[in-house]
Design a protein around this nucleic acid. Structure first.
Length: 848
DNA sequence: TATTCCCGCCAACAC
DNA sequence: GTGTTGGCGGGAATA
C-alpha cells in the first residue's frame, strides 16, 4: 500500500511519470526538478492541497514551468516570495536553464544517480531556508509542499527531515508540518551530542572495535567474525537527544526510536565529535550502532542495512557541510569513511565565570557537567514530550547535577586560586595530594612558602608573556629559549615539544599541577617504551591492558592525509555565536615508518605479561575503560592563576596536539603535554629541585600522575611489568620513608631494553624519581573503586576540560609549529620510535 | 567487484 | 479506516 498515492493525489501522476519507462520523461522530470529548485520553486504550489487541479507534471504544466522559469517577471516575483536573498539563486537558475534548455543534451541525458541523490536533494532543501532564520517569522515547512516543489517523494523528505531533526535544525510541529530553525541550535546540539557521546564512551567503543579489527588481522584464533561482539557494545541505548523547546513529536517516537534515522544520525554525529581524529568509517559506525541495537541479532544483512542508513545520513550531513567523505586506506583495502568538517565543539565552554574554572574543586566542580546536557535535553519548564529511555533519564539527572555544580560560584576553584595563591586554599583533596608529594619528597613545609613566592613571581611573568600570544607562537626547537622567563637552570631543558605557552612558566620554576584528564581514559598515549611522556593508568592491570590495546589501535588507526603528511595539526580557532570556541578539527597523524611488526611484537610481549590473564575477560575490559586516566596535563599553577580571569585554559586539545609531535610519541587523541626527558626533569617537576610539585588531581584521577620519560616512566603501558601493585609498593615504601622518593623498586624486564630512548641515557636520577614518583598515585588510584572513579571521571570531565583549556583558546597552530620545529626530538627519537600502527590513508573525495 | 544509495514496499502508528 | 511516518532491503548505478 503506497500511502503516498492516497495522501498526495497530485503526486501520483508525477510518480507515474517517474516510473515511466520513457527516458525522456524521466529526464524532463529530473530537469524540472532542478529548475524548480534552483529557480526558487518557481511554481511553488502554495500547498499541496491547494495545488491546482491542473497537474504540474503534465506536459502542459511542465511547459508552464519552463516558461515561468524563463520569465524574469515571474522569476522575480517568485524570488521575492521565496528567496529573500535570491539573486544568486536566480542566476543559478538561469545558468541551469541555459544549460538544460539550450540544447538537446538534457533530453538525452538520463537523470543520473547523483542528480537524485539524497545529498543533492538535501542541498536543494537547505537552499530554501536561511541558515539563521528570523525566529519571529513563520518558518514552517510543509512536507507535502516541499516534496512537491522538489519533485521528490515525500519519503525522501522524511529522510532529510529526520536527520535535520536530529540536529534540531527542524522540529516537528504537527502532522506534515515542521518548523525550520536553521543553525540556530546547531552548536548547542553538537555540544550536547558530544557530551552525550562522551558519556556513552563512544570513543572507547570505537577503539575497541578497531582493536578487534586489528586482532583479526593478525588472525587471532579466538576471533570468528569481523562483526562487533558484545563487549564492544556498552549498550547505552541512547534515545533521541532533545533540546529545550524542540521536543520530539514524531508519531513513531516510541516505537521506532531505537532504529530511528534521527537517533542514528545523532549517534553518528556523536562518533565524530568524540573521536580523534574526527574520521569515522562507516564500518565502525555501523558496528557501534548495531551494537547498541543488540549485537546478537547482527548478521550480514543487518550490517548492510545499517550501512545504507549511514549513507543516507552521511549524505545529509555532507550537505550540511558537517562531514565530508574520505577514504581510509588500510592494509585490507579502502574503507569508506567520513570526516568531520563541522565546528569543533568543546563541550560546555559556554561563558562561565572565569573565576570558576581554574582549579577543579573535586567535590563540587568535578561532579561534572551533565547538567548542561540535561537542561538541553529536558527543559525544566515542561513535561517530557515522549517516553524516554530510563538510561537517558539517569544520564540526564547526573548531567543536571553536574552542571549545577560546575556553575556553582562558591565552589569555584578559580576564586580560590585567584584570591589565595596559598596552596592550602586548594580543594582538600588537592591539598592532600600536594601534601603527599611533599612528604614523599621530604620537602618541609617551607616549600609551600617558596611556592607562594614563585607563584607570585610567575604571575608577574605571565603578565609579561601573554599566554595567548605565546600559544600562538611556533614552538622553537630544542634551542628554544624561555624568552621572558628566566630559567632556573637547574637542569638542562630541551623544548622540542612543549607548548610555547608553558615553556616560560616551566622555566620560571612555577609549580605545576599534574592533571590527568579523566575523559580520555581510552586514549592511552603511549605504546612505545620510548615515549617521553606517558600517561598511565594503573588502576588495575586490566586497565593497562585495555588501554594499551586501545591505544595501539588508536595508533594503528591514525590516519594520514592523502598527501602523506605525517604530522598535521590544523587550527582554525574561531568563535561561533559567541558561545563557545570552535576549532577546526585537528588532524594528528603519526609516523608512518613504524612497522606493524613492532606493534605485534609489543603486543606479544604484553601477552606474556601478567596482564594477559585479563584478556578475554570482557567485563574487565569494560570496567577498565571506565577507569582509565591516561592523559596528563602539566599546568603551571601561576599560569592558571593568571589566566583564570581570562577564561583561558589549557585544553586537552592543545595537549593532544602537542602529543602529536613526534617527540612525544603520543596518540593524537591523548591529552598530554609533550616534554622531553629533560623537560620532565627540569621543568615538569620543579618540586624536586625548585618548587614543590603540586598535584592537582581530580578525584577521578587521583592516582594518575604520569609524567616521565621512556625508561624511568615504567608504569606506563609500555611497561606492563609495572603492575599497580608495584606502583603501590613503591608508593608505600616511599611514603613510609622506607625508600627514597627517587627509588623505584620495580623493574621492567620485559620492555625495558627496548624502551631506552637515546636521551634516556642522560636522564638524571630525578627523572627516575619522577617515574617512581607517580607510581604511588597510581597505586592510590587503584584503590579507588572503579565504578566510583569512572563516574567521577565523567563528572569531572567538563570542568577539567574548561580548566585545562589552552590559554587563548585552541592554539593548535602552535602545535603545528611544534611539530615542524621539533626536529631535534624527532631525529633523536626516530630511531627508537616504537609506534605500532596500521597505516591508514585518508583521501578526501568531493562528494558533491 | 565493491561501493553507493535510489526506490518503494509495507508495517507501525496517529487520528 | 485512512493517512502519516519511516524501517527496511532489493537491486541498479557508479566507482
Amino acid at each position: 500500500m503506497e500511502t503516498e498515492d492516497k495522501e498526495n493525489p497530485s503526486s501520483e501522476p508525477h510518480k507515474l511519470m517517474l516510473k515511466t519507462p520513457l527516458k525522456q520523461a524521466a529526464t524532463s522530470n529530473s530537469v524540472l526538478s532542478e529548475i524548480q529548485n534552483q529557480a526558487g520553486s518557481l511554481l511553488t504550489p502554495p500547498k499541496l492541497n491547494e495545488t491546482s487541479p491542473g497537474d504540474p507534471w503534465t506536459p502542459t504544466a511542465n511547459l508552464k514551468i519552463l516558461i515561468s522559469a524563463a520569465s524574469p517577471e515571474i522569476r522575480n516575483r517568485e524570488q521575492k516570495k521565496r528567496w529573500p536573498d535570491g539573486p544568486s539563486e536566480v542566476l543559478e537558475a538561469k545558468n541551469y536553464l541555459h544549460e538544460h534548455l539550450s540544447g538537446d543534451e538534457y533530453e538525452k541525458s538520463q537523470p543520473s544517480r547523483k542528480e537524485k541523490s539524497l545529498g543533492l536533494l538535501c542541498h536543494k532543501f537547505l537552499v530554501r531556508y536561511p541558515n539563521f532564520p528570523n525566529t519571529a517569522e513563520n518558518n514552517e515547512i510543509c512536507l507535502d509542499e516541499v516534496s512537491e516543489e522538489l519533485n521528490v517523494e515525500r519519503r525522501r523528505i522524511y529522510d532529510i527531515v529526520n536527520v535535520l531533526e536530529s540536529l534540531h535544525m527542524v522540529s516537528r510541529l504537527a502532522k506534515n508540518r515542521y518548523v525550520w530553525h536553521g543553525r540556530h541550535n546547531l552548536n548547542k546540539t553538537l555540544q550536547t551530542l558530544k557530551k552525550v557521546g562522551e558519556e556513552n564512551k563512544y570513543k572507547q567503543q570505537i577503539q575497541l572495535i578497531k582493536r578487534r579489527e586489528y586482532e583479526q588481522e593478525f588472525e587471532l584464533e579466538d576471533e570468528k567474525t569481523g562483526m562487533v561482539t558484545t563487549h564492544t557494545s556498552l549498550n547505552t541505548d541512547l534515545c533521541f537527544v532533545e533540546l529545550p523547546g524542540m521536543e520530539f513529536r514524531a508519531a513513531s517516537v516510541n516505537s521506532r526510536k531505537d532504529k530511528s534515522l534521527r537517533v542514528m544520525s545523532q549517534k553518528f554525529v556523536m562518533l565524530f565529535l568524540v573521536s580523534t581524529p574526527q574520521i569515522v568509517s562507516l564500518e565502525v559506525a555501523a558496528k557501534i550502532l548495531i551494537g547498541e541495537d543488540h549485537v546478537e541479532d547482527l548478521d550480514k544483512s543487518k550490517f548492510k542495512t545499517k550501512i545504507r542508513r549511514l549513507y543516507d545520513i552521511a549524505n545529509v550531513l555532507s550537505s550540511l557541510e558537517l562531514i565530508k567523505k574520505v577514504h581510509v586506506k588500510e592494509e585490507r583495502g579502502r574503507k569508506p569513511a567520513f570526516k568531520w568538517i563541522g565546528p569543533h565543539i568543546l563541550p560546555y565552554t559556554n561563558p562561565v565565570p572565569t573565576t570558576t574554572t581554574i582549579v577543579p574543586s573535586h567535590s563540587v566542580e568535578c561532579k561534572s557537567a551533565k547538567e548542561q546536557c540535561s537542561k538541553n535535553l529536558f527543559p525544566s519548564r515542561g513535561k517530557q514530550s515522549f517516553t524516554r529511555h530510563p538510561s537517558l533519564m539517569k544520564l540526564v539527572k547526573t548531567i543536571e547535577s553536574d552542571r549545577r555544580k560546575i556553575h556553582s560560584a562558591p565552589s569555584s576553584p578559580t576564586k580560590k586560586t585567584d584570591s589565595d595563591p596559598n596552596p592550602s586554599s586548594f580543594p582538600s583533596k588537592m591539598a592532600q595530594l600536594a601534601a603527599i608529594c611533599k612528604e614523599q619528597l621530604e620537602e618541609p613545609s617551607r616549600q609551600l612558602k617558596k611556592m607562594k613566592m614563585k607563584l607570585t613571581q610567575t604571575t608577574m611573568q605571565c603578565k609579561l608573556a601573554s599566554p595567548v600570544k605565546s600559544q600562538a607562537e611556533p614552538v622553537p626547537s630544542s634551542s628554544q629559549t624561555p624568552s621572558l622567563v628566566e630559567p632556573l637552570g637547574v637542569l638542562p631543558v630541551i623544548h622540542n615539544s612543549m607548548s610555547p605557552a608553558m615553556l616560560p612558566h616551566a622555566y620560571s620554576g612555577v609549580s605545576y599541577a599534574v592533571y590527568l584528564h579523566p575523559s580520555q581514559g581510552q586514549t592511552m598515549t603511549t605504546y612505545s617504551p620510548t615515549f617521553t611522556l606517558q600517561c598511565v593508568s594503573c588502576a588495575n592491570m586490566t586497565g593497562i591492558k585495555t588501554s594499551l590495546d586501545a591505544n595501539s589501535k588508536a595508533l594503528l588507526s591514525k590516519t594520514t592525509t592523502e598527501d602523506g603528511d605525517s604530522s598535521i595539526v590544523k587550527d582554525d580557532a574561531v568563535t561561533e555565536d559567541g558561545n563557545f570556541l570552535i576549532a577546526k578539527e585537528k588532524e594528528v597523524t603519526k609516523n608512518d615508518n613504524i612497522s606493524e611488526k613492532c606493534l605485534k611484537r609489543s603486543q606479544a610481549l604484553l601477552e606474556n605479561s601478567p596482564i594477559k590473564k585479563y584478556k578475554g575477560n570482557e567485563k574487565n575490559l569494560e570496567d577498565a575503560l571506565v577507569t582509565l586516566f591516561p592523559s596528563v596535563y602539566l599546568i603551571p599553577l601561576a599560569h592558571c592563576t593568571q589566566l583564570g580571569n581570562e577564561a583561558v585554559f589549557y585544553s586537552k586539545e592543545k595537549a593532544a596536539m602537542c602529543s602529536s609531535e613526534p617527540g612525544t610519541y603520543s596518540s593524537s587523541i591523548a591529552g598530554l603535554l609533550p616534554v622531553t626527558t629533560s623537560e620532565v626533569t627540569a621543568v615538569n617537576f620543579p618540586a624536586f629541585h625548585i618548587t614543590p610539585l603540586k598535584l592537582m588531581v581530580p578525584p577521578s584521577s587521583v592516582a594518575t600522575v604520569p609524567v616521565a620519560n621512556g625508561v624511568s616512566f615504567n608504569s606506563s603501558p609500555d611497561n606492563p611489568s609495572q603492575s599497580p601493585s608495584s606502583s603501590l609498593r613503591n608508593f608505600t615504601l616511599q611514603h613510609l620513608g622506607l625508600i627514597s622518593p627517587g627509588m623505584q623498586v620495580s623493574a621492567n624486564p620485559i620492555l625495558g631494553p627496548a624502551s631506552v630512548h637515546p636521551e634516556t641515557e642522560h636522564v638524571s636520577p630525578i627523572s627516575e624519581n619522577v617515574g617512581s614518583y607517580q607510581s604511588p598515585y597510581l597505586g592510590l588510584r587503584r584503590n579507588l573503586p572503579s565504578g566510583q572513579t569512572g563516574k567521577t571521571s565523567e563528572m569531572c570531565q567538563t570542568t577539567t576540560e574548561n580548566f585545562f583549556r589552552t590559554p587563548g583558546g585552541p592554539t593548535k597552530n602552535s602545535s603545528l609549529a611544534v611539530s615542524s620545529d621539533s626536529k631535534g626530538v624527532d631525529e633523536i627519537s626516530q630511531g627508537t620510535k616504537f609506534v605500532p600502527q596500521r597505516k591508514l590513508e585518508v583521501s578526501t573525495e568531493a562528494k558533491l
